[in-house]
Structures are given as structure tokens and as C-alpha cells.
Nucleic acid binder design. Structure first.
Length: 572
RNA sequence: CGGGGUAUAGCGCAGUUUGGUAGCGCACUGGUUUUGGGAACCAGCUGUCGGGGGUUCGAAUCCCUCUACCCCGACCA
């Protein structure tokens, strides 16, 4: 491709909407442009990268026997109702109506779609295992899209689903996937950390996330440097070392706490530890169901554990009006004592609080010496505590650390949820009807690209790994006499199948250098007056500072060798 | 959804306090000179000042309203 003909709107200045490096660089290099919040168009350069990443994903999937499908983007409401997810899923599910007022969903994930497809054709164990996948758009109306394609509302995902006659077979595919994923990320030039995670509303058990360490990561990963325990904070456990104080129950009293609402302010007011407080949180689901959650004042509720405790139903903190209606008091004064007509659940920590402090369900008042059973009821106890840095390791009891990470891939053992709910069956060897057991496996394609850029850039721009670079070579003729040898090299390289850019624009050298660095093509060939006089050109890797002078005749072979070497490192 | 902010040329911004009919840099078009790290000069083009309503002789500027986008939070009780 000749740059003069390429739609490549590079930007010299940083667009004001972008905050993180990958977003800034993807905009500046002309890879993407924004259409609306969380919605992006890929321009030719970006699309080339996207296609390369997809290609690698497809190769790795095909290698382990997965087969690619292309289902529709729209899915009917009925499908989602079969598994209960039409009501279980929160507002992130994009719901639309057709002209007949029929409800449809722009798929946020495709367990139902594929299981529906599979159950129609599945009859015998001889058809199993079956591994299916697609690389296509997903729609999630995110609460807050941000960071460019890192968290968009419409994005490309490689999602695979597997169906098995038994759990042993599922485990085998799960292992294959785990290896395929490592290989995929390696080939894209990413170092990933495998992390135990929670499968949330997907409804599974075993799962593993592929995380990339990054400060802009939206996930917190808990790790134990002592014994190697690693888990997503959403799933991480910690040693529960609650002890009940040997203290007699004191008389329940009401205290005036004018305008003192937060745990922090209350701690200062009462001159006691935050552990003395029974924090009372009111949650509400999409269908208005409410639940009151109690937890010790110094702890936080793990949203995923809460979802699991509520049988997979998603709850969010209730709106202020809801809190006011339920507690008859402004926000900040909620407590479990005297609450009626609502389910109350509590974290295990609450059992051990003696003579605790909590809101009085009246403006500017708190209750002291509150005790479980004597003063309030709890319908059910769960472990709802969010594990944090500083808690003790569930395995070795040493102190836990944490780091931020970007989730680029996720594999799950799903179990029977979807095949049971959707009545997918096959006949086993003994002629008995059975549900297949399922696995599901996702890779965020856009996010993978953003993460690669996040980890591979310098002050001048992107440094693409050879495997996913939009072009492998960029030729920069800097003077009049350089154009002819440049074009010759350009043709030679294309003959070898090497994707090459020729910057044939009538621009000053500095401009060409800046653009080449910005878009991050791995190999740069510079043809200038001085070196040309010696019959040589300058060869440089984007990721390295130094360059070498190479005879014109040897260029194409040298370049071919360089690409081979780079690709071998990524593929090994 | 709560809080904060922004909206003026393709991009980045000034102008809004104090109302007087829109500007700077980059980009773009033509020309001359340049040519190894985003050139210089000359001459140009480019705007429903986010939308609607109001006040006023007159609104980018003041008032009301709507919308879009960004940031923080939404695990505060």
C-alpha cells in the first residue's frame, strides 16, 4: 500500500476524550474513530490489526478442533426466557422491539444461541464432543463505557462453547483451551497471568481468567507471595478469623448523631473501631425486589458473592428514594432493628458483633448495644466479604497482596445449566437420555489489541509485535532519487508476500519518521541521499534504537529474515 | 443514577467575567524556497459558536430548557 493512497488520518495532537495511552495512540495513529460513547469505527489500519488478531484466534481454535459459526446478532426474547436470563440480566442487556412489538436482545453473550443451535441437531454421544465458536460483535450497555475500545458497548469477541458427554471430556477440552489461550496471547505478544475467577451470572463453577498486569486494569487481583495463591478479588477468599468478644449484652440505646452518616464519621464520633458497626446496605434488583445486606463496618460486600447468594439474580445498591421508603429515614441511618417486610441477609462477620452500633432508621439517630437475635433477625447468613490487600491468605494465612489487571480472556466450566434449562439431550452408549455438559471460552479481541498497545509503546507511538502489525515493513524514501529504488524494494517485498507500506508522500523526512513511529510498523527502511550514494539503505526495528546499513541488493532477504526471527519468538 | 466538567473551523484551543455581529495554532488549497525527525514565507478556504426557547436595538457571551460527550463515584448508609 502506498501511503499517499491510504486513509490514514494521523493526529499530531492528543484528542481530549482519550485518557489512557492505548486509546490516545489508537486515535492518533488513525486506527479508530469514535461514533458515540462506547461505539467505535475501525479505520483501515485498525481493521487490519483486528483481522490479524482474529486470524490468530481462529487458528488456535481450529487447532483444537473447534468449528466456526456465524449466528445472528439479534436473539429472540424466548431464548433468554428459557434460561431465566431475560429477567436475571440487568440493564446492560440491550433489548429492542421489532415492528410487531416482539422483543429481541442484541446478544451480550451466546450460550443460549449456540445451545439452541446444537440441541436441534444433537442426538447421539457419537456427535460429542462438539466445540463451536464465533468471532463477532457483542453488545453490552455498560454502566460507564471508557478507555476507548477497552470497555466499549459494542465489541468483538471470540466466544467458544463446548458440549460433552461427561465431565472428564469437558476437562480435556478445558485444558486444550487453556493451552490454546496461552498460545494465542503469546502470539499476540502479551504476557498473561492465569487467575482463578468467578463466573458470575454465567452460572458456572471452575473458571480461569487471563489477566494482563496493568495500572489501568479495572480488575483487582489478590495474590499471596508466600504460597502463590492468585484469584480475582471477586472470587478471592481469605481466612475468616472472627471471634466473639466475651462481653455481656448491654441495654439497647438510641443516640443522637446529627448529620453523621459515614462509617468514618461515626468512628470518630463514637471513638471506636469500625469493626463495631453493623453496616446496613439496601439492594434492589431490576424487578424491584429488595434485600437488606448487613456486614461489619470495616468490610465491604462482594457483589459477586451477593449475586450467588441471591441465586444468580443481580442486585444493585438501591436508589436513595428506595432507601427512604424502606427505612423511613434519610440515607445514612439505615439499620436492621425493626425492619419489616424485607429479606435481611448478613455476612458471617455480623454474627460476632457484640453490642454493635447501627442506624436507627430515624434521621440523625443511631442505635448502640445492638445484638443479633435479641434486637434483630437475619434470614440467612452468607460469606459476602470482599477480600482485600492485607487480609490473610486462605491457604497459608500470610498477608495477601493485590495488583490491577486487564481481563483479556476467560474460560469456564459451565456445567449443565444451559443444556438442562434448554432441554438439550443426547443418547449415551447405553441408550439413556442425558444432558451434555458445557464449557464456554471468551477472548476480548478489541481489548487484546488495546492491551498490546498499552504494553508496547514509547513516547513516539505504538510498537506493534510483528504478528499483529498492520504492515510489517514501512519504506521511507526521503529524497527524489530514493523513490525509484524504494518502489523497486516495495515490489520485491510484496512478491515475497510481505505486507509493505511505501511512504510516497511529498513530505519532509521528519513528517514521515513521526508517522512511521506513531503507527508502529515493526521494520523501517529509510532511503536517503547519503546512504544511497554508497548503494545502501538504513534498516531499523521499531522496538530498537539502533539501525544498520544494508546494501540495496540484500535488503529484501535481510527483511525476510528479520520477520522470520520475530515471528519465531512470538510463536515459540 | 449521584457529583464535577466540557460543547466555538477537520483537530487542539482563546473569546463568555464586563453583550456590539468570531479569532489563534495545526491541518487543508495554490504558489515560491526548502528536504535525515511534525519547514519558512505569500495568498486562500473553512463556522447553523451543541439544539430549542427567552431577555435585548443587538447574544458565542445573560436567563430557562433539552441533548451529547468526558472524568470521579455508585461497595455511601
Amino acid at each position: 500500500m502506498k501511503v499517499s493512497k491510504l486513509f490514514l488520518p494521523t493526529l499530531k495532537e492528543t484528542p481530549k476524550d482519550a485518557v489512557i495511552k492505548s486509546h490516545i495512540l489508537m486515535l492518533r495513529s488513525g486506527m479508530i474513530r469514535k461514533s458515540a460513547s462506547g461505539l467505535y469505527s475501525y479505520l483501515p489500519l485498525g481493521f487490519k490489526v483486528l483481522k490479524k488478531v482474529i486470524q490468530i484466534a481462529e487458528e488456535e481454535m481450529d487447532k483444537i478442533g473447534a468449528q466456526e459459526f456465524l449466528p445472528p446478532i439479534l436473539t429472540s426474547r424466548e431464548l433468554w426466557e428459557e434460561t431465566g436470563r431475560y429477567s436475571l440480566m440487568g440493564p446492560q442487556m440491550w433489548r429492542i422491539k421489532d415492528r410487531h412489538q416482539q422483543d429481541f436482545v442484541l446478544g451480550p453473550t451466546h450460550e443460549e444461541s449456540f445451545t439452541d443451535l446444537v440441541r436441534r441437531e444433537l442426538s447421539s454421544y457419537k456427535q460429542l464432543p462438539l466445540i463451536v465458536y464465533q468471532v463477532y460483535k457483542k453488545f453490552r450497555d455498560e454502566i460507564r463505557p471508557r478507555y476507548g475500545v477497552m470497555r466499549g458497548r459494542e465489541f468483538t469477541m471470540k466466544d467458544a462453547y463446548s458440549y460433552h458427554a461427561d465431565e472428564t471430556d469437558l476437562s480435556k477440552t478445558y485444558e486444550d483451551m487453556r493451552k490454546a489461550y496461552r498460545q494465542f496471547f503469546k502470539r499476540c505478544g502479551l504476557d498473561t497471568v492465569p487467575v482463578q475467577a468467578d463466573s458470575g451470572s454465567m452460572g458456572g463453577k471452575t473458571s480461569e481468567e487471563f489477566m494482563v498486569r496493568s495500572h489501568i486494569g479495572e480488575d483487582t487481583i489478590i495474590e499471596c507471595p508466600a504460597c502463590g495463591y492468585v484469584a480475582n478479588a471477586e472470587r478471592a477468599e481469605c481466612t475468616l478469623d472472627y471471634e466473639k468478644k466475651e462481653e455481656a449484652f448491654k441495654t439497647l440505646e438510641t443516640k443522637d448523631t446529627p448529620n453523621i452518616k459515614t462509617i468514618e464519621a461515626l468512628t470518630a464520633f463514637f471513638q471506636c473501631s469500625p469493626k463495631q458497626f453493623i453496616k446496613t446496605l439496601i439492594y434492589e434488583a431490576l424487578d424491584q425486589e429488595k434485600v437488606v445486606v448487613l456486614i461489619r463496618g470495616d468490610l465491604e460486600v462482594n457483589q459477586v458473592k451477593l449475586t450467588n447468594a441471591m441465586m444468580g439474580k443481580e442486585f444493585q445498591l438501591a436508589k436513595d428514594e428506595t432507601v427512604v421508603t424502606l427505612t423511613q429515614a434519610p440515607v445514612g441511618f439505615a439499620g436492621p432493628v425493626g425492619l419489616k417486610n424485607v429479606k435481611i441477609i448478613a455476612d458471617e462477620s455480623v454474627r460476632y458483633i457484640v453490642n454493635g452500633i447501627t442506624g436507627a432508621n430515624q434521621k440523625d439517630q443511631h442505635l448502640v448495644n445492638v445484638n443479633f437475635e435479641r434486637d434483630f433477625r437475619v434470614d440467612e447468613f452468607f460469606n459476602l466479604r470482599l477480600t482485600k490487600k492485607g487480609d490473610s491468605c486462605p491457604q497459608c494465612k500470610k498477608e495477601l497482596h493485590s495488583f490491577e489487571g486487564i481481563e483479556v480472556g476467560h474460560i469456564f466450566k459451565l456445567g449443565y445449566k444451559y443444556t438442562q434449562d434448554m432441554k438439550a439431550v443426547f443418547l449415551d452408549a447405553s441408550g439413556k437420555e442425558q444432558h451434555p455438559i458445557m464449557g464456554c471460552y471468551g477472548i476480548g479481541i478489541d481489548r487484546t489489541i488495546a492491551t498490546v498497545i498499552e504494553q508496547n509503546h514509547d513516547e513516539d507511538g505504538i510498537i506493534f509485535p510483528m504478528s499483529i502489525a498492520p504492515y510489517q515493513v514501512s519504506i521511507l524514501p526521503l529524497s527524489e532519487e530514493a523513490f525509484e529504488p524504494a518502489e523497486k524494494l516495495y515490489n520485491e517485498l510484496w512478491k515475497k508476500g510481505i505486507e509493505t507500506l511505501l511512504d510516497d508522500r511529498d513530505l519532509r523526512p521528519g513528517f514521515k519518521f513521526k508517522d512511521a513511529d506513531l503507527i508502529g510498523i515493526p521494520i523501517r527502511v529509510t532511503l536517503g541521499k547519503k546512504t544511497l550514494a554508497e548503494g545502501k539503505a538504513e534498516l531499523k526495528l521499531r522496538k530498537e534504537k539502533t539501525n544498520t546499513l544494508v546494501l540495496l541488493d540484500e535488503l529484501s532477504e535481510k527483511i525476510e529474515q528479520m520477520i522470520k526471527t520475530e515471528m519465531e519468538i512470538l510463536n515459540s
